[in-house]
Design a protein around this nucleic acid. Structure first.
Lengths: 222, 222
DNA sequence: TCAATAGTGTCTCTTAGACAATATTGA
DNA sequence: TCAATATTGTCTAAGAGACACTATTGA
């Protein structure tokens, strides 16, 4: 059986990941500059090819892709959608499952690893056709999904450092949603949230009233 | 290149579809009794293998699967999730993208076609381990997605015949959600819904006050 | 007239949004 | 004391839920 024949019978199976973090109060997504074919020198979401002999499932593929780009551990990974077709990748009939992942804001030491010329943390709402393939569509799908979840009341604690104030949390939600939130209303909403764990006696101090510190409750799931 | 080698490098790519309809005011999903390996004689969601030479994308695969089971045209198809792994299908490393589809209530002339011994329209909330593979998981994911959409205010007009009354629509929403809705509140919600098109002078008559008929507005998208 | 369902109105309670007031620190 | 931010409180308008009322037909 020839390779060309195989390529007609089996699609290329890949994974692409939108890794979000918060920098200076703004949401950012990791993009990489491709070294190899196809689309060399073009920007894209970090992605990789499924290795059935290595990956237990596609989630593993996504984790493997991320760990080759980012030194620190990613705290949340969630599947968004699957795109497919003969035209979307010049290598032939392909399938790509898109994920999004969340990274704590301070830790952005991403590295340009193998087959990547450069990286950038860019504003996901302002990409101006920088992305190759259908990655702009995938990124928009990921952002829409993330926003829907936060709008429904999910708390993006994975975007924060381990200990955080309620203002930190509000800023993270605002960064995700792209809108300002009212302080009073926000605090009413999260007042009885079981996923928030108040740290008694621990405060963030500064030239103002100290702010109560919180951490995610054990077993917290975004 | 041997087939066994190919199977280790390329996953099996399939599609499974949860086709919903409403019968006697209750939500139903189509399940089929498998004829062939794997899992012969077991019930499952209708599914099929991707044919890259035939299908333009996975949505096409899903449509092809449905058209082999159901004689009439399916009015809505939406992707739910993608599952993957070496264990979920005995044939080896596999990927399956799950969809749900909606069918107008009266039209349930599904046929037991090729490689299917029998069909059944069963209550999706009461399946008692009838389904093979991980199809119960896929069905639950599909139902959850459908319910979320209706709860957010989407109107499942695709479950209704072309002309319908507001009571018909309320019954369909109730069937999807599995709860009773208040008539007054429901009508308040849909009062200014642009996807509903009142048919002037057209009424459903019976031994009671006639009911105004509606149809989906042109360009309606669920 | 009656049964049956269509369609509308009303009341209350909750909540979101806007905004104000108070609290507590470092400088 | 003052600037700055944390935290809490208040007012209002809009909406959800429950329930009742009126409308219109066939039998």
């Amino acid at each position: 059986m020839q390779i060309s024949k195989v390529k007609k019978l089996f699609p290329l199976v890949t994974v692409d990941v939108a890794l979000f973090t918060v920098v200076d109060g703004g949401l950012r997504v990791l993009i990489v500059r491709r070294e190899n074919d196809p689309a060399p020198d073009k920007w894209a979401l970090p992605g990789g090819i499924l290795k059935p002999d290595v990956d237990k499932c596609l989630d593993d593929t996504a984790m493997r892709v991320l760990s080759s780009k980012v030194a620190v551990d990613v705290r949340h990974l969630e599947q968004v959608t699957t795109v497919s077709g003969a035209e979307r990748d010049p290598r032939g009939w392909s399938i790509s499952t898109a994920y999004y992942a969340l990274l704590a804001g301070e830790l952005v030491p991403a590295v340009a690893g193998a087959s990547v010329k450069a990286i950038d943390w860019c504003d996901p709402t302002d990409l101006q056709d920088r992305l190759a393939f259908d990655h702009e569509f995938l990124l928009n799908a990921a952002l829409t999904r993330l926003r829907a979840k936060v709008r429904q009341g999910a708390l993006p604690l994975h975007l924060l450092s381990q200990k955080f104030t309620l203002t930190d949390l509000q800023r993270a939600c605002e960064a995700v949603l792209g809108t300002r939130l009212d302080k009073g209303a926000f605090r009413r909403l999260i007042k009885d949230e079981p996923s928030l764990c108040l740290l008694p006696g621990e405060y963030l101090r500064g030239p103002q009233r100290p702010a109560q510190l919180f951490q995610a409750a054990t077993g917290f799931q975004f």
